[in-house]
Amino acid sequence: MTAHVSETAIAVRTSAHEKALQTEKSEGPAQQIDWFSLVVIAPAVLILLGFLLLFFYGVYQSLTDLRLGRPIVRFVGLANYAALMNTADFWNNVRVTVTYALSAVLLQALLGLAIAKLFASGVLLARWLRPIILLPLVLPPMSVALMWTTMMNPQSGVLNYLLSLVGLGPFAWIADPATALVSVILIDVWTYTPFFALIIFAGLQGITDDIREAARINGAKGWATFWRIELPLVAPYILIAAVFRLIESFNQFDIIFGTTQGGPGDATAALSVQGYITAFQNMTFGRGAALMVVNWLIVLIGAFLTVQAWQAVRRRVN
């Protein structure tokens, strides 16, 4: 009896020892540092830290009176922001920025949806337009600005010539404060509508014929199918495209500066352009940095609200 108990105890201890060894072997690799993964992600982390450092340095500059020729830089707190908000020019900059971004993105979404629907129809015209629609996206924004500046010239521009053929015009386009902002919005729409069209077209491709057939069986006609089936399903694609385009439109510089440089007067003086002029032409770097921080806050608010709308639509669709 004693021998049997001893053998049982030895067997239990051996089994426990083997389990401990297996546990150590299984936990060993997990506790080792994956140096390869750290080396791979290190450049991305360093670049991110560099951007964050530059951003916070810009925020610090906005709290100083830094300007060219001033030997001593003083910390002035929120004085730059207070001075900006007490001027009518600043609120005009905000108005231009918000109007430009919202108008451009809204028009791009509507036109992009129409073009995507045309592409999804499979007509012959759509097949010809698919490769051509990408051309505005591959052009540098400054080249687009210079091209449209030439075409919108009130005296020798091709746009006024084409309008004269149908008895319209001439228009001053970017030379008139009343039409300059509309003109640069149209340039932005021409340039970036293909971005919306491609993303929405991808969303339409994900809608199977079974869904459309079920809608037709339930009595939905063409417009009703689009309004009640297709549009809700592609709404998340529209909003995710709107997030990227809002961020770019609030920060738009190339098209505006390349065509009007913020003029005539202050008709197209968006925050990004005014920040550049204030910092690098007027050499008041602290005030220019404050303008860019305000621009960043507007971008943050716009992107946050759009992402919230996207999440709400996603929950409703799912």
Results as ranks from 00 to 15, higher is better:
residue 238 I to C: 08
residue 99 T to I: 05
residue 179 T to A: 05
residue 273 V to G: 10
residue 274 Q to R: 09
residue 244 F to M: 15
residue 198 L to F: 01
residue 2 T to H: 15
residue 167 G to K: 03
residue 205 Q to E: 07
residue 51 F to K: 01
residue 11 A to I: 04
residue 65 D to T: 06
residue 43 P to Y: 07
residue 5 V to T: 08
residue 6 S to T: 05
residue 313 V to H: 13
residue 62 S to A: 01
residue 49 L to M: 09
residue 35 W to A: 12
residue 216 R to V: 04
residue 266 D to E: 05
residue 52 L to P: 10
residue 22 Q to D: 12
residue 8 T to G: 02
residue 259 T to A: 08
residue 139 L to V: 07
residue 37 S to N: 13
residue 263 G to N: 03
residue 168 L to H: 05
residue 52 L to A: 11
residue 53 L to Q: 15
residue 269 A to D: 15
residue 137 L to E: 05
residue 56 F to D: 00
residue 45 V to M: 11
residue 264 P to Y: 10
residue 38 L to T: 03
residue 241 A to G: 13
residue 126 A to P: 08
residue 54 L to C: 00
residue 219 G to P: 14
residue 41 I to Q: 05
residue 57 Y to L: 00
residue 217 I to T: 12
residue 129 L to A: 14
residue 301 I to S: 11
residue 131 P to N: 01
residue 307 V to K: 10
residue 30 A to I: 02
residue 191 T to A: 09
residue 106 L to I: 13
residue 37 S to K: 06
residue 283 M to Y: 15
residue 193 T to P: 04
residue 301 I to P: 04
residue 167 G to E: 11
residue 196 F to D: 05
residue 236 P to R: 00
residue 170 P to Y: 09
residue 147 M to V: 02
residue 21 L to F: 05
residue 290 A to H: 02
residue 2 T to V: 13
residue 166 V to T: 14
residue 237 Y to D: 14
residue 277 I to H: 15
residue 191 T to K: 12
residue 30 A to V: 09
residue 271 L to F: 12
residue 279 A to W: 03
residue 95 R to H: 13
residue 41 I to P: 05
residue 174 I to R: 01
residue 158 V to T: 11
residue 255 I to C: 07
residue 267 A to P: 10
residue 281 Q to K: 14
residue 80 N to R: 05
residue 82 A to H: 11
residue 65 D to E: 07
residue 142 M to A: 11
residue 103 S to E: 07
residue 85 M to R: 12
residue 303 A to Q: 02
residue 158 V to K: 11
residue 133 I to V: 03
residue 92 N to T: 07
residue 119 F to I: 02
residue 73 V to A: 01
residue 10 I to S: 02
residue 265 G to L: 02
residue 42 A to M: 13
